[in-house]
């Protein structure tokens, strides 16, 4: 069987949750005041624990360790999962970006990078590399804010980015390549590009569909919002 890390993590998370539920039920049914009187040791294989200590251990696992583990695994899974394009596409406000990226006739930066296979996989994450598990705290906060807005349906289309896009996402791949260095304007604007005072898009155009295209009722809206196949 050929399991990807993501699937293993998902399986592990599911098992953790199941175990947590089972142990929680068990803990709930435990009468701690009666254990003392019965007082039998429990055989743990490598050691023997008094029944009360065992019950407390189970309670600790059920109420603290396993939930914490589940939260960690869930976060890990989310952060890793959203590296994938379909992770982004699972929120329907992101459909216009993903649909446009996969449209061979689109001229946006995202579409050109995708069509020309400049990025082999995880195309969204490659240019927005601050939101993964290793990303910065600000991106995490932004991500949770998006989650809160999305799940509570308290957002308005077209959505707008609040934080400034970091040019590093572009420069990581492009800086230093002969084609990049051959352009005089890149030298002229070097300081401003590195310090994010000037955005790369000023010369290279739209990255995604415009806010006008993403506004409900626009000519392109229905096409951009088509469900992913």
């Amino acid at each position: 069987m050929n399991l990807e890390l993501r699937q293993i993590v998902m399986l592990l998370g599911t098992l953790t949750c199941l175990l947590g539920v089972i142990l929680s039920i068990r803990t709930a049914r435990t009468r701690f005041d009666r254990i003392e009187t019965s007082g039998q040791d429990v055989n743990m294989g490598i050691t023997r624990l008094p029944a009360l200590a065992f019950a407390k251990l189970v309670a600790f696992a059920a109420l603290i360790a396993l939930p914490a583990g589940a939260v960690f695994i869930a976060n890990y899974h989310t952060f890793e999962g959203v590296h994938e394009v379909r992770g982004c596409a699972s929120c329907h406000v992101m459909l216009p970006m993903v649909n446009d990226m996969r449209d061979p006739n689109s001229g946006t930066l995202a579409a050109r990078h995708y069509k020309n296979r400049w990025i082999a996989e995880d195309q969204c994450y490659h240019c927005h590399s601050d939101y993964g598990l290793a990303g910065n705290l600000e991106a995490k906060m932004t991500g949770f804010r998006h989650l809160a807005r999305y799940t509570s349906r308290t957002y308005h289309e077209p959505i707008e980015a609040r934080v400034r896009f970091d040019n590093k996402n572009c420069l990581n791949c492009h800086a230093g390549t002969p084609r990049f260095e051959a352009v005089q304007s890149h030298k002229t604007a070097h300081e401003r590009l590195v310090s994010n005072q000037m955005i790369c898009l000023n010369c290279h155009g739209q990255a995604h569909p415009t806010s006008a295209q993403r506004t409900p009722g626009s000519n392109d809206y229905a096409r951009l919002m088509e469900k992913m196949k």
Binding site: S185, T188, A189, L201, N202, C203, Q206, T210
Partner: peptide, 21 residues
């Protein structure tokens, strides 16, 4: 403090180095 190409204008957000300055 900043100038960006207007994505809704005819130039679809694209400027040149002069415009960016």
């Amino acid at each position: 403090v900043d100038v960006r190409g207007d994505e809704l204008a005819h130039n679809k957000g694209v400027l040149c180095i002069k415009g960016s300055m």
